[in-house]
């Protein structure tokens, strides 16, 4: 009886609290979404509409026209293709070489293992900007300036991916190795038919994180490419920003920005479960 009374008096208060939480969350989501919404709305307007005062914050009818125009102007197809190649080669490359190194580190004893492990670890402390000039010199010495090899291979080493796979292999029971040995299958066979089929979740997780990393590179592609044919989209769209006396075609700038933004954001949304896992696990 008493409890029922208590419950009744508490319930409206709890509902009220939940309402506040919902309102605050909706406010945050709107605040975070606003730049994207703004960019999208502008990308559907004519140039006159996009620079009028006050701006209308509603979509207009120029979406297709704007996107087509900017697509042709900066060869968006080529830019998106290059970004996809870079993001795919970098993410898959990082995963592949990290699987192999983690396998060597966990399942073999060899001379120099400790040093190798430390060398991979130290790459965490050498982000692109701090070695940019000399890395550029090394790549031009190899003759890789303005090539896909130059764009991707220097970015492929990955301490975080190596650590993640190492952690994962350490959780695989020793009995499986023993069983494999008794069956007479060698290490590569074990890697291929036991470890890899069980690494799916880790690979998917790393793939999202590394794909975004590759797609969003700016400084390195800016340095290492000089022809329009090799440019990536994040660098390419920066050139659409009007300067000086150029027409203020901000509607086209925003259309270009949307096209550069959508692929990585889609990858994050569609693979959200794996992405959160990959992000958290690889930093542990």
């Amino acid at each position: 009886m008493n409890g029922a009374v208590l419950n009744q008096s508490r319930k409206p208060q709890r509902d009220w609290k939940k309402l506040v939480i919902h309102l605050l969350l909706i406010l945050s989501v709107c605040l975070i979404g606003f730049p994207l919404y703004y960019g999208f709305v502008i990308s559907t307007q004519s140039m006159e509409e996009s620079i009028q005062k006050p701006q209308k914050l509603l979509p207009s009818g120029y979406l297709l026209e704007n996107y087509k125009k900017v697509w042709n102007r900066i060869q968006m197809g080529q830019l998106l293709l290059n970004s996809s190649i870079v993001a795919l080669v970098v993410s898959l490359g990082k995963i592949a070489i990290s699987i192999l190194s983690a396998f060597a580190i966990v399942y073999f004893n060899f001379r120099g293992k400790q040093i190798a492990f430390w060398m991979i670890f130290v790459t965490l402390m050498l982000p692109v900007p701090v070695r940019i000039i000399s890395t550029y010199q090394v790549v031009s010495y190899l003759g890789w300036v303005d090539t896909y090899a130059g764009l991707t291979i220097p970015l492929i080493a990955s301490a975080t991916a190596t650590f993640l796979f190492r952690q994962f292999y350490l959780t695989i029971p020793d009995e499986l190795v023993d069983a494999a040995k008794i069956d007479g299958s060698g290490p590569l066979r074990f890697l291929w038919s036991i470890l890899l089929p069980n690494s799916g979740a880790n690979m998917a997780a790393l793939f999202v994180v590394m794909f975004i990393y590759g797609w969003n590179q700016y400084l390195w592609p800016l340095m290492i490419t000089n022809s329009d044919k090799m440019k990536v989209v994040v660098v390419g769209i920066a050139s659409t920003v009007p300067v000086g006396t150029q027409l203020p075609e901000w509607n086209l700038v925003m259309a270009a920005a949307m096209m550069a933004l959508i692929p990585p954001v889609l990858v994050v949304i569609l693979m959200q479960r794996w992405f959160v896992h990959g992000l958290i696990e690889s930093e542990k």
């Binding site: 945050s28 975070i32 969003n216 920066a238 920003v241 920005a257």
Partner: peptide, 15 residues
């Protein structure tokens, strides 16, 4: 909220 992870810093800069 999490979708913002996909934004490239320069693209964010331009918007």
């Amino acid at each position: 909220v999490l979708w913002t992870y996909g934004i490239a810093p320069p693209v964010s800069g331009i918007i």
